[in-house]
């Protein structure tokens, strides 16, 4: 039973390329992203870097449907994501973390992760529809077995996902999410994204606010994940360049809403334009006056 279910839940994964074509979004007078075009092949780990206000987070907001582009298209494999609402995009296999790490503060750690399994529980998106509203309600009220089996399976998966983070999260599974440390809230958010078994994982500054040890630990986890799930495409916004060097096979540097450099980490980070974009412009190198 359980094996069949696992298969049913796994069978619908069709990793495809993430394609952005001329994606433009303005906020008032500010052009947040300007005709951004790039393709991320399935299974790639791409890092997006750039200074504050370069449009990196807007890009994540655009891909996940929280912000709609003024122009351009966004596709994932066969699906056009351009005009879809966030939960439909999520159900198609796109999981994300937020820059500000949005956990559900009043839910327990385990519950927070389980929220990420809801689509798999009721179906829809990549999966065939399994329980409509009435069927789900009836299943809950009368304890029907099909729903319960699926629920148990997903609870096991949530447990396994929490245990990916060693003893950081699992021992705290019954604590409310708001009681977690900042670093643990970031981990919890990533756990919620992973438990959905996404085809595309978007991480917005996953190591922000972590000390070097914690940063290293999370980078190792992402590396492990990348190795274990070769089909999973990962796009991460990251400022810590040692993390970028360790993980990314490709780097896109954004500046003023546009793609400045698109290359391997070594090339991109050595590019004088990138050094300039980060440290800032100065007409006459470091001379004074």
């Amino acid at each position: 039973m359980s094996a069949a279910l696992t298969q049913a839940l796994a069978a619908h994964r069709h990793p495809g390329a993430l394609v952005l074509e001329g994606v433009t979004r303005r906020f008032g007078g500010l052009v947040a992203t300007n005709e951004v075009t790039f393709t991320v092949p399935g299974g790639e780990l791409l890092a997006i870097v750039g200074p504050n206000g370069a449009g990196k987070s807007t890009l994540v907001q655009l891909i996940t449907g929280f912000v709609r582009p003024d122009a351009g298209r966004i596709r994932l494999g066969p699906h056009d994501l351009t005009r879809l609402p966030p939960e439909r995009i999520s159900a198609l296999g796109v999981a994300r973390s937020f820059q500000t790490s949005r956990v559900f503060p009043g839910l327990t750690v385990l519950e927070s992760v389980l929220v990420g399994t809801q689509v798999q529980l009721i179906g829809g998106g990549r999966l065939p529809r399994a329980f409509n509203t009435l069927a789900e309600t009836a299943s809950v009220l009368f304890g029907l077995p099909a729903y319960a089996a699926r629920r148990r399976l997903l609870e096991d998966r949530a447990e396994a996902t929490l245990k990916l983070f060693g003893d950081r999260l699992w021992p705290r599974r019954d604590a409310p999410a708001f009681s977690l440390s900042y670093a643990n809230r970031r981990r919890l958010e990533i756990a919620r994204a992973l438990v959905a078994e996404p085809d595309l994982l978007l991480l917005d500054e996953p190591t922000a606010g972590m000390n070097p040890t914690e940063t290293g630990e999370l980078a190792d986890l992402i590396a492990q994940l990348h190795a274990d799930r070769p089909a999973l495409t990962i796009v991460m916004i990251e400022h810590k360049l040692q993390v970028v060097r360790q993980l990314a096979s490709r780097v896109i540097v954004m500046n003023h809403g546009s793609v400045l450099v698109d290359a391997t980490p070594e090339e991109a980070l050595a590019d004088p334009r990138v050094v300039t974009a980060y440290l800032g412009r100065a007409e006459t190198s470091h001379a004074h006056g």
């Binding site: 200074p51 504050n52 300039t276 440290l279 800032g280 100065a282």
Partner: peptide
């Protein structure tokens, strides 16, 4: 406060 270090240092 500035991110553009080269400009700021000038």
């Amino acid at each position: 406060v500035e991110q553009n270090a080269n400009m700021a240092l000038q």
